[in-house]
Design a protein around this nucleic acid. Sequence first.
DNA 1: TTGAAAGCGCTAACAT
DNA 2: ATGTTAGCGCTTTCAA
Lengths: 327, 327
Amino acid sequence: MDKPTMKDVARYAGVSVATVSHVINNSRFVAPATKEKVLKGIAELNYSLDLSAKSLKTGRKYLIAFLVPDISNPFFSTLSEEIESHLMPSQYRLLLANTKENPEKELAHLAALTPLVDGFILASTLPSSAKIKRIVGTRKPVVLLDRRLQDAPWDCVSSNSYHAVQEGTSYLLQHGHKRIGYIADLPHLSTTKERTQAYIDCMKDSGYFDETLLISARSFARKNHLHVRTLLQRGVSAIILSNQLMAIEAYIELNEQRLKGVTGIELLGFEDSNQPQYGLRHMHKIVQPTQTLARSAAERILKRIEGEEAEPRNFVFPSKLLIANNN
Amino acid sequence: MDKPTMKDVARYAGVSVATVSHVINNSRFVAPATKEKVLKGIAELNYSLDLSAKSLKTGRKYLIAFLVPDISNPFFSTLSEEIESHLMPSQYRLLLANTKENPEKELAHLAALTPLVDGFILASTLPSSAKIKRIVGTRKPVVLLDRRLQDAPWDCVSSNSYHAVQEGTSYLLQHGHKRIGYIADLPHLSTTKERTQAYIDCMKDSGYFDETLLISARSFARKNHLHVRTLLQRGVSAIILSNQLMAIEAYIELNEQRLKGVTGIELLGFEDSNQPQYGLRHMHKIVQPTQTLARSAAERILKRIEGEEAEPRNFVFPSKLLIANNN
DNA sequence: TTGAAAGCGCTAACAT
DNA sequence: ATGTTAGCGCTTTCAA
């Protein structure tokens, strides 16, 4: 009653293990009749390949690690679900590691996982790629996801929200808002820089830029209700939140303020998956192309693991502004 | 410049590979001086054990799978983070699989992962353990987490919220609420049954039970704002939500209703990690012992993998009621 | 068109 | 107190 091996299948089918292996991997021609017999043996004995043995022989681990800054952030949990489902048809499995927006933790994970996996999908919380390169080396492929990194010799899959933020800010300005607050995430992130810049450019163009309305925060800290209050005290009539988690917090806080009589405030937030979470209906949103990001990242890492040698490429997908219908 | 093997370390230290192996695994006595040399060799050559080879030899995979119903639910994402951190000191890694509250998907994952992992931590979305047993067999240990299962021959780690829900309901009754609504999650889940029963028992005791105020929902559907409206139309003055995700949605919807003039409604929800998410301040909460659950589950699965043969045990940790201070 | 066999890096039984 | 070595299940080169 032991787990059957290739040898068992070979004996059953009256062929050699080499033939069984080649049938499974489609790695050389096998006569249709022979192939038939082998397939039958596999089904009959309920055989399944031992990946450890294959791994020992080939050097591959059949494991891909996805390092996320915060798995309880719906953006990243959706990404991981989608990546996982795109990996399903391959024999690769996804290992998830949570870095909690902590560079040390990220480096520790990279070091611990490097010998265990064939490649990384990385939403990095680091400011640059130097340390990562040192740990991961040049042999294991890396695909950067969501957050770009300086001088990184890897494929990078990200969204571009510059235009969407610009459009959104313009929309607010056109609708009479002059004091528009902005709550930014960690300043070293590429996403933060891009989005904040769009806001700044737009506000400066219109002549209403006021740096006291630009708050640098950390989505991980869950302190956004305080920042919302600060901005309200500074007289804003609209607030832009630089990601979904912050948007949810701000939405909740704004409602509480409304109950205390505050009126006329508009919110522009992010939505990171196209299933409407929590029904934040009265908020303008920038919708990220989450599914596309996930699919592209999964594709890239598989290609690189299979040995694709082309120059690193950037894959950029635009976010879209979604104006709430005011009902 | 190839990856060093045990042989390299052995040669460097002037000993046999057996000795190196025993030093690494602490599996037999090695003279301190010899051990020293080996350790030096390991450090010097930057050696790291090849788990695939070890795996082939021992049959272990050094991988544990955690099957979650919904990774974007903060309860499960917190659990996974905590389990992961408890596994860190061991050589086991956590594989996360998302079943999306779909029994078919859960079974498919179990089948795909069974040959790849040493054990499962399972927050099952199935109504009973029969099919799981058939797939997983008796060789791979399973630890049930959060959700109990009929006739399951496995350790089970769960919280008990019966008392907390009862206390909470009593509190509401004592504060003059008579029409108290309840929005339940999937009816076949052990957690749902237990919590709903506590509510029903309490309401019947007081003579105010009204079955039209008990709504059976699905947290996965994100439709709770509608259920809240339904209950308000039916004249409730308090609503109990049977998990955190539902609580967040209800909280948001209630605030919107308040803005339309609704007053005097109280909410009792769940909080699944003790970092206060989204600052839902004006809500009573039942706090789950999330960290304890995670620690216990990690402990159990490791013990079972190491071969512990004791009878399956239930580990139950109580949830706690937290009354909001009304400010 | 298929088979034989070496060997991947490790563990552990058997030696001494 | 330590060494020798068979063999885990697979891939792949070489041979037929």
